[in-house]
Design a protein around this nucleic acid. Structure first.
Lengths: 238, 238
DNA sequence: TCATCTGATTTGTCAGATAAATTGAGTTGA
DNA sequence: TCAACTCAATTTATCTGACAAATCAGATGA
């Protein structure tokens, strides 16, 4: 499924180098391969190599200067919320702590997002949340993908805030869910996608009760976080 | 100060088109200029034009396909948290509501960041927060830039979480502060950077009291948000 | 020892050509 | 008449080769 539909040369270079950088092969301060070396390694032209480097630069990973080559920037400049960067990070064998970091951030902004969605109370946006919830219910009966419906639920909440700056965080949620399902399965023997907890969030938003929505989202995420934290401590830090 | 130190041709094209897209000149679904048109308009080569388009693509703004040109993607795909995108958005004449959106998001994640910083309790990271606070105190006496020291304070809190995914949000804080100082000055006649409130946050983090740190950060941001909200309602939505 | 100059190396930009993909008109067949 | 197919035109994707600009390293001179 989802075969490698012959991605372009530039994308190939970008993804390879991106994975290697996020995987730690080129730590901050190190110099990436020069253009000539990239061309040689991938059998590509300088155009393709340069465009790939520009993409990595655009995501905050490196800094290029004539003669000095491409230097990897310090971690604080990396766009960790960029979908591609998250994908490269996920692709690299990351310690178990990865999922805890993601949940901590989600706990940060998703509660407020739920509260904003409730107080804004936009019928059309809330309908999208409701549809995603129904899809989750169907998925729990085996009809449909549980990860994508779960992600759709949370993304719909972000959209319902009416605040542009919440939107880019959906990539983080998507990554967290894709990563956490196998992890929580391994930890607990079953997925943790909690239908009841999602239902509470939905009802609070439908009722326009911001405080209740915030609390429902907080309860849901903090319970998962607590369970993962204890499980990770028991199995030993990865 | 900070003169336009002859940025490169590619950067020139990227910034011009980025500002125009964020300014609404090319709404989602519209097709951006073709490569040939970009070359003609900026008097640049196709290499420069293509690299600029690749950068905009990397930030989620557009989608290019052979023969179809570059289509502007829907807003939900834009990386609004990217530093460049935030800069282009700020450069465009944005309604007064801009600052409210930024404060809503900050209220979302900065409270949790303060709590995490407190519970992690890393002496080195907390020292950075303390130094930034001292810089703010000096700035309030006229020694130094109040915006940069304020930004440094909040960025240090994000770093003190020890969570990579909080780091990219410092760009949003920086933008919010750069934008809010003139705005709040215009609204209230004086800047709102509250030294006492920052001190409370610092002391709670130093004490390792997560709940207190969360509350102190929440109080600080929600007060600014409330004051801006009422002021905007009074002066009329812009 | 230090400042300055010079040359080599690497990125930045340009120009032109070919490949690949897609659209849309035109053609064919039922 | 309409559906499916063919084919040419257009645009992006890639390659090649060249020159400009910036920077570093070593040589030069005081």
């Amino acid at each position: 499924m989802a075969g490698n539909q012959t991605s372009s040369v530039t994308d190939e270079i970008t993804n390879s180098l991106g994975r290697e950088i996020l995987g730690g092969l080129f730590p901050p301060g190190a110099t990436l391969l020069g253009e000539e070396e990239i061309c040689a390694r991938f059998g590509a032209s300088r155009s393709a190599a340069r465009e790939a480097v520009k993409i990595l630069w655009a995501k905050g990973l490196l800094l290029t200067r004539p003669r000095r080559g491409s230097r990897i920037r310090p971690l604080k400049d990396w766009n960790f919320l960029d979908p591609s960067v998250l994908g490269w990070l996920r692709a690299s064998a990351t310690p178990r702590h990865f999922i805890i970091e993601l949940l901590e951030v989600r706990l940060g902004f998703e509660c407020e997002a739920a509260a904003l969605a409730a107080s804004r109370n936009d019928p059309d946006e809330i309908a999208v949340i409701r549809e995603a919830f129904e899809a989750m219910r169907a998925a729990s009966s085996g009809e449909g993908d549980p990860v994508s419906s779960d992600a759709a639920f949370h993304e719909a909440v972000l959209a319902a805030t009416g605040n542009r700056f919440f939107l880019p965080l959906s990539a983080l949620i998507h990554t967290a869910l894709q990563y956490s399902v196998p992890t929580t399965n391994a930890l607990f023997g079953h997925p943790v996608g909690d239908l009841d907890a999602h239902g509470k969030v939905l009802r609070a938003i439908e009722a326009g009760d911001a405080a209740k929505a915030r609390k429902a989202m907080h309860d849901m995420l903090s319970e998962v976080l607590a369970r993962v934290r204890t499980a990770v401590e028991l199995t030993g830090a990865g």
